[in-house]
Design a protein around this nucleic acid. Structure first.
Length: 580
RNA sequence: GGUGCGUUAGCGAAGUUGGUUAUCGUGCCUCCCUGUCACGGAGGAGAUCACGGGUUCGAGUCCCGUACGCACCGCCA
């Protein structure tokens, strides 16, 4: 071994010990005949001091050289409170160069000025920095807790294939050409969905996997093309069982990583979440529920409002208490543009202060209607109400986005809070304009609500499912559902999706077949590991919690993947690249 | 597929209405320094201003295109 201690562990009590340390030179301070070196490894930084008799040893040492030193632990006269090891230093008496280093393209410190682009190209240097390193360590801690808790409850970790089969519904697949079967492709799994259900049929009872998943869709700040799910499935179980197990896992994670024990897991039906928050993943760290005020304006003199109601639309209102003075005319203009992204036509606002109204619809609305609105919403001094009159879905989504945006901008969010909620009873289907048919809102193996079985193939719009999400601070942390375990029911769903017998046989044949041999009732979830770590570590950038992430255009700046391949490799696969 | 912003020494930034030697910080190199911990002091090197085209007597600066990066919309069962 090059070391008998790490750079993070020596303390005052170790004074007098002769130790051997190894690590990277984080910083060298040369004061002439005395040289200080901050030696860094995964565990911390320790100051190593070379006095007048030893400073020549390190005269050529530079930042990020890898060195091994021996010396005596000594208590410092003036401790450095910024280091955990700041009370001691090691007085070096020997030195060994293990590896030299070029000048690095970025400063390796907690605070670096390098842009993400540079950090990604030299990711191995970025990982030496605490902010990235700590997130990887946290990630390890979380998956370790998950494995322990689930094993305690008899869950079995099973690995499922990465070379998998393409599925017709859902995200675009990453494809892998087959050499032995010309013109055929494996698909990388978007999730181990079918395999884990087959494990239930195989009697595996309680399964989990820390599973890598792949989706060939455009990226976002919280989306990578490959990501990890804590994938779980339980037999002879329903929502209550899986909720309890997930909550147990979450409680263990939050207790052991953040010391937080007072978590609650309220449940909100999808339709109620949309109604109150305009989102299926509302951030509940702040209130500000939306209210439908259409009844107040059904006969309004303000034609835009009354016409909207007459045409079956809604008028959604959102109150921000004691904030009117913080929202300028310019801000409302910006918000009006903002809601247009969500297809809303306009954003109305009304301020109330000291008995007086003002704002965009102040002149358009008669005094009586304004007072009715004030009384209904219990407006007080310096309150502001924002309203969108539009089709239900548009008004909800657009005003929900305003709620989220202003919640952040007005500082209504307590960053130390962690607010979970289960969103339940998602719609079974959603209409795809692109394909001109109903598609599964979750996936086609999701069970409908018992009371909606009759609607499966005739009233898709009003058919709700036993799918659920767990939301944390406005992020969709996991999705899951109770599955269909009856082949007749499954057939109905495929019919409703407009899948032909042939498509069903080709894409799901083996899966459907399995359900003829005794499928237990089962349900499960997939927990997004990256999102969980993001929230736990307080970042809103998914790249921070992935060891080697891809850019927004799915490119690896470090390895230059994806790359061209040799003609030989293409020949083996009988592939030809079209150049046009 | 779409919208917006960005690209100037190794890194991070400034660069005015187009004008002569492109500025600052940091890092790097050399020298000085025995208590620093963002060490300090002196000196020095380091730039095809992303790429291609255009306007102009003259372009880092204006225009068009391309590439790359970031964010968002679409998309993400």
């Amino acid at each position: 071994m090059n070391r008998d201690h790490t750079c993070g562990e020596l303390r005052k009590e170790d004074a007098g010990k002769h130790v051997r340390l190894a690590g990277w030179v984080a910083k060298r301070r040369n004061l002439g005949s005395i040289v200080f070196i901050d030696l860094r490894d995964r565990y911390g930084i320790t100051q190593v001091t070379f006095d007048e008799n030893h400073s020549d040893l390190v005269k050529d040492v530079r930042n990020e050289y890898v060195i091994e030193i021996e010396g005596t632990v000594s208590v410092k006269e003036t401790p450095n409170p910024r280091l955990e090891t700041g009370e001691i230093e090691v007085l070096a008496d020997s030195f060994k160069l293990l590896s030299s280093a070029k000048t690095t393209p970025m400063i390796i410190a907690d605070e670096t000025d390098a842009l993400e682009e540079v950090r990604l190209k030299y990711r191995y240097l970025d990982i030496r920095r605490n902010p990235i390193k700590e997130k990887l360590l946290l990630r390890d801690k979380v998956t370790t807790i998950v494995r322990r808790v689930l094993h305690e409850d008899d869950f079995v970790e099973v690995e499922t294939p990465i070379l998998s089969k393409s599925t017709p519904e859902g995200a675009r697949d990453y494809l892998v050409p087959s050499r032995l079967y010309k013109g055929r492709f494996y698909a990388l799994p978007q999730s181990p969905q079918q395999y884990k259900q087959l494990l239930m049929i195989g009697g595996m009872d309680r399964y989990f996997q820390i599973a890598r998943c792949f989706r060939d869709e455009d990226l976002r700040a919280d989306r990578q093309p490959e990501f990890t799910q804590i994938d779980m499935e339980m037999s002879f179980a329903d929502e209550e069982d899986i909720f309890a197990e997930v909550e147990k896992v979450m409680r263990a994670i939050f207790k052991e990583t953040k010391g937080i024990e007072d978590l609650s897991f309220p449940r909100i039906r999808y339709v109620d979440a949309m109604d109150k928050y305009g989102s299926d993943k509302p951030d509940l760290r702040f209130g500000n529920e939306m209210v439908n005020v259409k009844d107040l304006f059904e006969h309004s003199e303000f034609k835009i409002f009354s016409d909207c109601v007459a045409n079956g639309g809604v008028i959604k209102a959102l109150v921000f208490r004691n904030c009117a003075d913080k929202l300028s005319r310019k801000k409302f203009d910006e918000l009006t543009e903002f809601v247009k992204i969500y297809k809303a036509k306009a954003l109305a606002y009304l301020k109330y202060d000291k008995g007086e109204f003002s704002g965009s619809v102040n002149n358009a609305l008669p005094q009586g209607e304004k007072e009715a609105l004030r009384d209904f919403l219990k407006l007080e001094n310096n309150d502001v109400v924002l309203m969108i009159a539009d089709k239900k879905a548009i008004a909800e989504t657009a005003l929900g986005a305003v709620r989220k945006k202003l919640g952040e901008e007005l500082g209504l969010i307590d960053k130390n809070k962690f607010c979970f909620e289960w969103i339940t009873e998602f719609p079974m289907y959603e209409y795809s304009e692109e394909e001109g048919r109903w598609v599964s809102a979750h996936h086609p193996f999701t069970a409908p609500r018992d009371e909606d079985v009759d609607k499966l193939s005739c009233d898709q719009e009003n058919c709700y499912s036993r799918a659920y999400d767990l939301v944390l601070n406005g992020y969709e942390l996991l999705s899951g559902s109770v599955r269909i375990h009856d082949s007749v029911m499954q057939k109905k769903v495929f019919d409703a999706l407009g899948l032909s017998e042939e498509q069903i046989r080709n894409k799901f044949g083996f899966f459907i077949e399995a359900f003829n041999y005794g499928a237990p009732p089962h349900c499960g979830v997939g927990i997004g590991v990256e999102r969980l770590i993001m929230i736990l570590s307080g970042t809103d950038n998914i790249k921070d919690v992935v060891a080697f992430p891809k850019t927004a255009s799915a490119y690896c700046l470090m390895s230059d993947a994806p790359s061209s391949v040799d003609q030989d490799q293409l020949d083996f696969l009988s592939l030809e690249i079209r150049r046009d």
